[in-house]
Simulated assay, not measured.
Amino acid sequence: MPKTTADLHDYLDVLGIKVQTVTHPPLFTVADSQNLRGEIAGGHTKNLFLKDKKDNFFLVTVEEDAVVDLKTIHTLIGAASKVSFGKPEKLMEYLGLIPGAVSAFGAINDTHHQVSIILDEALMRHEIINAHPLTNEATTSIHRDDLLKFLEATGHEARIVSVSTAETAPA
């Protein structure tokens, strides 16, 4: 059974990691998040659950407005081939998450280390990172160093890789 938000917060407490969580109605898209979140400081995330042809799975976490080239990202993240989106069943099996609630906090459920965690270098420039705490009905703010500490405690060595470009408004 996947961990709950309460389980996640208990785990973070055990690790001595302080976070701030704001609850809100369910959010399913970046646009929903931008419209509802108000003034939550820091970098806000977008997450891509990807797989290659050899069934290697990757969670790529970038800034919400980042552009990721899915045709070439495999060369940056160490995939064995071009990637596609992982199926919701594998997302639940490995990270205990449903689409719309995906975040690096899902690593707490990946006890067999089936998913490689990739954090975009541009996102990691933010001191505070905001992500769903295993549900899309809340946003949790965590210090970037504490996010790395959390991932390490779950047995995941997150790789920080430049995988995106910032989205620019059309002229």
Rank of each mutant, 00 (worst) to 15 (best):
N35I: 07
I73Y: 05
F85K: 06
H74M: 06
P26N: 10
E63A: 14
P25H: 03
T29L: 02
A80K: 14
D52R: 05
T45P: 08
F28N: 15
P25C: 11
E64K: 11
T75L: 15
D65Q: 10
T29N: 06
A66C: 02
G78H: 05
V60E: 06
F58S: 04
L97V: 03
Q20S: 12
Q20A: 15
L97C: 08
K87L: 13
L91C: 08
G78Y: 09
N56K: 07
A41L: 13
K46R: 13
I40E: 08
T45E: 04
F85P: 01
G96T: 00
A41K: 15
L76R: 14
P25Q: 13
V83W: 11
G42L: 11
H24A: 12
V68P: 08
H24S: 15
P25N: 05
E93N: 03
A66H: 14
F58A: 02
E64D: 14
H74W: 07
I40Y: 14
T21F: 02
Y94S: 05
K87I: 01
H44S: 06
I73H: 05
K46C: 00
V19R: 07
V19E: 03
G38S: 05
A79Y: 03
F57I: 09
L36E: 15
K87V: 12
F85N: 02
D65S: 10
K71V: 01
L97M: 04
V68Y: 05
L76M: 04
P88F: 06
D69M: 01
A80E: 15
L50R: 13
A80P: 06
L76E: 11
D32F: 01
A66M: 04
H24E: 07
D55M: 11
D55N: 07
K71W: 06
K53H: 08
L27K: 09
I77F: 04
E63Q: 05
